[in-house]
Simulated assay, not measured.
Amino acid sequence: MLKSMWKKLVVESLLKNGLRTPSQWNIPTSTLRFSLEKICKIFPKNTQDLHFEHDQLAGLPVEKISPNNSAEHVILFIHGGLFMLGSQHSHRALMCSLVQRTQLPVIHIDYPLAPEQPFPAAFDALYQAYHALLNQGIAADHIILAGDCAGANLALSLNLRLLRENAPQPCGLVLMSPLLDLTLSSESLRFNQQHDALLSLTLIENAIQHYIAPHTDRDDPRVSPLFDQLQGLPKTLVQVGSKALLLDDAQRFRAQAKKAGVEVEFKLYTGMWHNFFMFDAWFDESKQALADLAAFVHHLKSND
C-alpha cells in the first residue's frame, strides 16, 4: 500500500513538471503532438493474441485491433487530445488493454484535428464514419461508442446527432474523463487546478480557441454536449478521477442524464488524475477502471 502511494506521488510529480507545467507555455501544436507521441511510447503494449488491421471509414484512417475469438459487438473508439492532439499511436497501448480486457474488437479512428481543421470538421467526419461502419454490415445495436477527454465529447455529440436524425443508435456509450462543457464553467476546473497531474486550464483554453471558430458559441450543444437534450441516450458508463480538472463535467453529465431518464453508471476513482486509464500497467486504479469498463460492456452484450 505504501509502495503504491509513493509510486503514485512520483509519477504525479513527473507529470506535473514534465507535462502539465510546460503545456502552459506557448508551444506550437506540432511540437506538442510530437512530444505526446514520444511520451506515450513508454506505455507497455500487451499484443499477445491480438490482430491488427488498417483500413478507412469514410476516408478516415482506422486501426482495428481484434482478440483471438470472434465477436459480434465492436467498440468504436474516438481518442482524446483536446481536439488537437492524439492519434492511433498515442492511444495504442490503451486500445490493446481494452481489447484484452473486453475480448471485443476495437475500431480506433483518427479524425481531423484542430487548428488545421476546426469545428465542424471532426463532428461531420465522425458522423460519416459511423454510417460507413453501418454500411459495412455492422448492426448499430452491436456498436459500443467510446472516447476519452475530447474523444468523449465527440462520441457524445455523435450519439446526440444520431438521436436528432432518428438514425440507428449504438447499444452503449462510454465516456472516460469527458470534456463536455467548453464554456469552462465546471467548478472542478478551479479547485482541482493544483491536483490534476496531467491537464492545465491554460492548455484547455488554448485548445478550445483552436477548435471552435469565433462565430461558434461555446455553449452550442454540438461542441458542448452537456447543454444538449440528453433524452434517448443508450446506457452510459462515465469514468473519472477525483483529482481530474474535468471531474465536474462528468458529475454534471451524470445528474443531467439521470434527470433525462438515461441509465447511467458512474465510476469515481479516488486520487486519480485526468486520463489515468492510460497508466494501467502501473496502477491498480487504472486496472480497476478497465475492469469496470469490461464489466459494463459484457452487461450490454448479455442484454442483447
Rank of each mutant, 00 (worst) to 15 (best):
P28W: 09
Q256W: 03
I39F: 11
H89D: 06
A139W: 11
N166C: 12
L237E: 04
K3A: 00
A295Q: 08
S66T: 03
F77V: 07
F253C: 07
M95H: 13
Y127R: 00
W282Q: 05
L180G: 08
Q194C: 11
P178N: 09
L162E: 13
D55S: 06
L57K: 04
T31L: 05
M176G: 04
L82E: 15
Q136R: 15
S23R: 11
H89W: 14
R190Q: 13
Y111V: 15
S97V: 00
A155Y: 01
Q239H: 03
M5D: 01
Q231T: 14
Q209L: 14
A129Q: 05
F191R: 00
Q117G: 13
M278C: 07
L173Y: 07
E63N: 12
Q229D: 15
H195V: 11
F191H: 01
P170L: 12
V62G: 06
D217Y: 10
F277I: 02
A146R: 01
Q128M: 07
L173N: 07
A155R: 05
A146C: 13
D284L: 05
A281Y: 11
T202L: 03
L184F: 11
Y127I: 02
S286A: 06
K8P: 06
F83P: 07
P214K: 12
Q239M: 02
R20Q: 14
T270D: 08
I39Q: 15
P67E: 03
F119N: 14
S185M: 04
H299I: 03
D219M: 04
S30N: 07
A93D: 08
N17E: 15
F191D: 02
K8T: 09
L82Q: 10
R222Y: 00
Q229T: 05
F253K: 02
L180H: 01
H131M: 07
G80V: 07
H79M: 10
P28R: 10
P67M: 02
A294I: 09
P28S: 15
D148L: 04
L300D: 00
A121F: 09
H89T: 15
V99Y: 06
